[in-house]
Amino acid sequence: MADEVCIPVSSEIDIVTARQKGREMASRLGFSNTDLVLIATAISEVVRNIVEYAKKGELCLNILQEGGKSGIVVIARDKGPGIPNIKLAMQDGYTTGHSLGLGLPGAKRLMDEFEIISEVGKGTTVTMKKWVQNNG
């Protein structure tokens, strides 16, 4: 886990930092320009969720190597209020905040793998992965 980079999240300024770091790491891994935008946007959505609902948390980025494939894993962690109904939170247009309600379901569509674990009163962890597409 030597490559892991974690960014503490406590204000909306950290959203910009987090997506820049994510973009840097993804760029080193050889992702296409389109994928770089998708990854940065997905990071923006999950980090904004931390700022809006949990106030504080962290975003960790790491490199994935698996069977000749490489990719990036993005983990957004907080000890906030948790999500009582994940199914509802993953529905397009559902929001309890001031957003469009596209953050979590949108981030899922932008990445290849998406997992959310949440416990009310304990916090939420979102894990997202994207693999570099090898063309040819």
Partner: peptide, 14 residues
């Protein structure tokens, strides 16, 4: 709006 950004916005449903 850059082409990659347009792609991402559509994927997000924006």
């Amino acid at each position: 709006i850059q082409p990659e950004v347009a792609f991402s916005m559509v994927q997000l449903g924006l």
